[in-house]
Design a protein around this nucleic acid. Structure first.
Length: 435
RNA sequence: GUGGGUAUAGCGUAGUUGGUUAACGCGUCAGUUUGUGGCACUGAAGACCGUGGGUUCGAAUCCCACUACCCACCCCA
């Protein structure tokens, strides 16, 4: 081994084939569920103008202040690797004139995101999000529909131990009111609040509600509750949402403590929590962001969305013992005896592959015994041993690796179709059995 | 950025009054077995025992520092 020892950067991960299999299962469920709900996929750049995130996520947030991977490239303006998915999607929607298309626009994405954080269970520096955005509807029915979509994704993956928390953080008008009340309340406790909360008092007192410090959370218990400060419109919106969720029989609890850490949220916020995956338990987070599109220069348009961390979904799925489909295994392994036969197996393999079968032959130069052992190891469904005799006779013995039975297949124009029948009978029973 | 834990082959582990050549299981490769795999047996490759220093005649083992990883705070998906 060389002395050069290059390891992957902190907070990144290699996804090996056996894991990729699980990823694809989860991504597949995300995609197909979103599509069932009428969402279309959108893909946006991995990096964006830094100003996009400062503007949308908020310059006072931790994400923007200390977690962004920002680079300057050859004198161009500053770019940042996307720390979340919504900003880029909204930028793209505006930039591509999609606000002129039929509302609601319903978009989903699966993308990697980057945040410079200290890694731990369920938290990486490069991670992956599945997100859905609904643009152009202010109705609480949309909120409920979106939550239903998220719940369905979790259910279809096989995650069965989550709980849903919802809250409303109001619109800028009622939130200003509430913030004022919070400041008044927490100001009485400046002697006991933790240092970060003291600084939050000016910047964003709502975040104090989120503080996990025992002292702060004790004080926060008796703090004014946002729900008491909602304006009529916001209150009605939230009440409607709860009604619809009840009608849809989606279980939730109202948690006035949940406050999203991204500045763009308004009115509805929600999260799905999974307690069995460690401290980073939020498996899905989302809400309404009615002001964001205008903030980014588009026409004033209401919108909402959520994101799920794929890594966390995977952890939760494993905890729920969700089932994953096995990797596709070899349909037929073609063992050969001798050089001439090897060339024949190569041709046969190509024929099988053209038919859409997974076919392999010996590209290592192994003994017959070793070839068979390999066929077994890669879980080949069938094998065939091909030597000079077989070529002469034009008949190939195909072995069912599970039962050990051997069938003869004539090497004629129907050969591949015949194998297809054999394989189908193996996979689906006797319906396709050879006569 | 702040704490706590861990560090022995590809993976999982054993290895304390400090004592020869660091052990075991799985996996990998080969052979027994060039007309048929799974089982079995035999053999091989693979470890600067995380890095650096210290104590000692002697360190995987004791001490110190560092690093990496994991977990938690924080933050969030």
């Amino acid at each position: 081994m060389s002395e050069l020892n290059i390891k992957r950067p902190k907070g990144t991960q290699d996804i090996t084939p056996i894991e990729v299999n699980k990823w694809q299962t989860i991504e597949g469920v995300c995609k197909s569920t979103a599509e069932d709900y009428g969402f279309s996929e959108i893909r946006t750049p991995t990096f964006e103008d830094t100003k996009l995130f400062v503007r949308s996520v908020g310059d006072a947030t931790d994400v923007v202040q200390k977690e962004m991977y920002t680079v300057t490239s050859k004198g161009d303006s500053e770019f940042t690797l996307k720390p979340e998915g919504t900003a880029g999607v909204i930028r793209a929607v505006i930039e591509n004139g999609m606000l002129n298309e039929a509302f609601p626009q319903k978009l989903f994405y699966i993308t990697q995101c980057f945040r410079h954080e200290k890694p731990q269970a369920g938290r990486l520096r490069e991670f992956h999000q599945f997100g859905c955005e609904m643009i152009g509807t202010k109705s609480p029915i949309a909120d409920a529909d979106l939550i239903m979509l998220a719940a369905d994704v979790l259910e279809r993956i096989g995650i069965n131990n989550t709980r849903l928390n919802i809250n409303s953080i109001g619109c800028p008008t009622c939130r200003a009111e509430y913030t004022k009340a919070l400041r008044e309340y927490f100001s009485q406790h400046t002697d006991t609040l933790c240092d970060t909360c003291i600084s939050r008092l000016e910047k964003n007192p709502m975040r104090i509600l989120d503080c996990k410090s025992p002292v702060c959370s004790e004080i926060a218990k008796d703090a004014p509750v946002i729900l008491d400060y909602l304006c009529d419109e916001c209150k009605e919106h939230f009440d409607m949402l709860k009604c619809i969720l009840d009608a849809m029989e989606i279980e939730y609890s109202v948690n006035p403590r949940i406050v999203r850490g991204l500045d763009y949220y308004t009115k509805t916020v929600f999260e799905f929590i999974c307690d069995s995956i460690g401290a980073q338990a939020t498996v899905c987070g989302g809400g309404r962001y009615d002001g964001l599109i205008r903030e980014l220069g588009g026409a004033d348009t209401p919108a909402l969305g959520f994101a799920m961390g794929i890594e966390r979904l995977l952890l939760a799925a494993k905890r729920s013992r969700a089932e994953f489909i096995d990797r596709l295994s070899c349909d037929i392994y073609l063992a050969s005896i001798g050089k001439d036969a090897l060339l024949v197996t190569a041709q046969l393999a190509r024929g099988f592959r053209d038919m859409g079968f997974i076919a392999e032959y010996d590209i290592v130069g192994r003994s017959l015994n070793a070839q068979m052992k390999y066929a077994n190891k890669i879980k080949a469904k069938f094998s065939a041993v091909i030597g000079d005799d077989d070529i002469k006779k034009g008949v190939i013995k195909v072995k069912n690796m599970e039962t050990g039975e051997i069938d003869n297949l004539k090497l004629n124009e129907n050969f591949y179709d015949r194998f297809s029948d054999v394989l189908n009978s193996y996979l689906f029973g006797d319906e396709f059995a050879l006569d």
